[in-house]
Computed example of a mutant assay.
Amino acid sequence: MPNQRAVPTLRRRRLGEALRKYRNAAGMSLGAAAAALGWDESKMSRIETAKARLSPGSVAPLLALYGVTDSTVVEPLEALARDAGKQGWWQGYGDVVSSGYRDHLTLESDAESTRIYSPDLVPGLLQTTGYAREIIAATAITRPPEQVAALAEIRKARQAILTARPGGSPLTFWAVIHEAVLHQRFVGHPNVMREQLRNLLDMGELPNITIQIMPLTATPHPGMMGLFEIVRFPRPWPTVVSLENIRGGYFVEGTDDVAVFETAFDRVVATALSVDDSRELIETTMKDRT
């Protein structure tokens, strides 16, 4: 059966989780909800666990059963059902893109805004190809050279969402970067960092991008615990926090946990240099590279 072969993509998982949340809020059991629609209980279970497809036309009747008729909830869920199996542009890179990275790219493409504190690297959405290649080669230690090149291409292609997106506005992006990052050096490639600093200045001129620098002289702040990224979506989707380490990334969800990171980011922003002072520091550092 086609529904049994559905791939549990991130969008399909988010749809299933939302439907399960509304069913539980309505106080309905899985069996009762399935019976009301004339479905088999196993079908309902597979939909909620992202193992079966749900047609967009079935979303509104299912939500109405749970007492949810608000168009600002129904329409996004219908859109998610429509796009649940859609493959992103990164599918052409095959196994080079891990499942976790695919999830990150999907979240990024669906988001309306992202806020990131990056203590050790220029954020991926602001990296030049040369900088990305050097960083990936140094950190993706299990990847062969051809995959390093492919991942650098992917990182550059991601940046299209900062200038245009089909059917939507560009991503709003706010990055706080530690000053130490501006002083990185790459043996044998002296121009990489200068080009990267120039790119930060250019990208910072876009109206949807905010760049601040955390100075070396900063007082203690929550960002000292490491990189974190807050990804916000249009209603009704909850905000997600992305965390990374050398083995990849993982996501934090839940109102209380996300609120902690949002407060942390506000404090990071308050500690960092202003946008104008940050730009001046980047310009000064770039001139020192000549």
Rank of each mutant, 00 (worst) to 15 (best):
Q4T: 09
Q4H: 03
A6Y: 06
A6M: 14
R11I: 15
R12F: 05
R14I: 11
L15V: 15
E17P: 00
A18R: 12
R20A: 07
R23M: 09
A26M: 10
G27W: 14
L30G: 11
G31W: 08
A32R: 15
A32H: 10
E41M: 14
K43C: 00
K43R: 08
S45N: 15
I47Y: 12
I47C: 12
I47R: 06
E48P: 04
K51L: 09
K51G: 13
A52Y: 04
P56R: 14
V59C: 01
L62N: 06
D70C: 04
P76W: 15
K86C: 02
G88K: 09
W89H: 01
W90S: 04
D95F: 04
V97S: 00
V97R: 07
H104W: 03
L105F: 10
T106Q: 12
E108D: 02
A111N: 11
E112W: 10
T114E: 06
D120W: 06
L121M: 13
L125G: 02
Q127P: 01
T129P: 00
E134R: 12
I136K: 07
T139A: 10
V148K: 01
A152H: 10
E153H: 10
E153A: 15
I154N: 02
R155H: 03
R155Y: 03
R158T: 09
Q159F: 08
I161R: 05
L162N: 12
A164K: 14
R165W: 10
G168I: 07
S169L: 01
P170E: 03
W174E: 06
A175E: 15
V181K: 03
R185S: 14
E195Q: 14
Q196R: 12
Q196N: 08
L197F: 07
N199P: 00
L200K: 07
M203F: 09
G204K: 06
I211H: 06
Q212Y: 05
T217F: 03
P222A: 14
G223L: 08
M224Y: 02
M225I: 02
M225N: 08
E229R: 05
R235F: 14
R235D: 09
R235N: 01
T239C: 04
T239N: 12
N245K: 08
G248P: 11
G248C: 03
G248H: 01
G248N: 05
Y250I: 00
F251Y: 14
V258Y: 04
V260E: 02
V260I: 12
F261L: 02
A264S: 08
V269K: 01
V269F: 03
A270E: 09
D276T: 10
E280Q: 09
